[in-house]
Design a protein around this nucleic acid. Sequence first.
DNA 1: ACAGAGTTGACAACCGTTCTCAACTAGCCT
DNA 2: AGGCTAGTTGAGAACGGTTGTCAACTCTGT
Lengths: 131, 131
Amino acid sequence: MTSTEPGLRPTKQRLAVAAAMSSFEDFRSAQDIHELLAHRGDPVGLATVYRTLQRMVDAGEVDLLRTEDGEAIYRRCSDTHHHHLVCRDCGATVEVEGPAVERWTRAIAGEHGYGDVSHTLEIFGTCPSCR
Amino acid sequence: MTSTEPGLRPTKQRLAVAAAMSSFEDFRSAQDIHELLAHRGDPVGLATVYRTLQRMVDAGEVDLLRTEDGEAIYRRCSDTHHHHLVCRDCGATVEVEGPAVERWTRAIAGEHGYGDVSHTLEIFGTCPSCR
DNA sequence: ACAGAGTTGACAACCGTTCTCAACTAGCCT
DNA sequence: AGGCTAGTTGAGAACGGTTGTCAACTCTGT
Ligand SMILES: [Zn+2]
Ligand SMILES: [Zn+2]
Ligand SMILES: [Zn+2]
Ligand SMILES: [Zn+2]
């Protein structure tokens, strides 16, 4: 837990979740992480897992994206703005950057008079080892 | 209902949903559409609304995207590949195209050995009349 | 040790979506 | 027209991910 706000305690549970998030590279659901912690011998209540992940997402320590059916999946990510190239089969994820895309989205929005612009961009494919 | 498959009937309900989808420009949830139909005097069961929307999404007649909290929202769209510039406040939506982005995503995926590439890209902002 | 704010977790509640299945149609054959 | 059949509908139940509840617990400072 990097983010230290006033009155935010580094409890066993929060540290366990943070550790778990550092132990894999792909995107996983809250329930997966909850199970992983249980198997690992650091059981953490499901509600706490959700709460902690939320906090980490807000702090920018973790990226959240949605599967095709709307389920939230989480991954520890670098703190700079980036996007993901995700394997549709095994979940293997690569962080990618595209300055041109950043420029383009801002330009398009400007052309239509939209301000305060943000965007989401994810690329899906089949990774080399899943072909 | 444009898509005519073998044994697919243009029922009152399906036509009503199709008509409803042509009556607005922004993205709406299935429940919104269900209510809209009721108010309009063409009540259609919620399950049927979901089923019909699914079918239209599969047929490419309707675009589906997810709100921040994972809810599915639907909009009648042109059948060519495109993305959306959506007003965060009122939902006003503009379809946009970006050949450069299309090229870029394919290139990035290729560089990492990913094949069978697809992507999602949505731009959010505040439209002129909501500023 | 004590107080008080922060945290936890079992469980219930929520809510969007999907399933079930008996009743109902639209379309087709005679 | 009458009947046959595959397709469709909708009320309600079920499902599954997520959030809320709240009494018990745990830090941390005094
Ligand atoms: Zn893979
Ligand atoms: Zn970006
Ligand atoms: Zn607007
Ligand atoms: Zn595209």
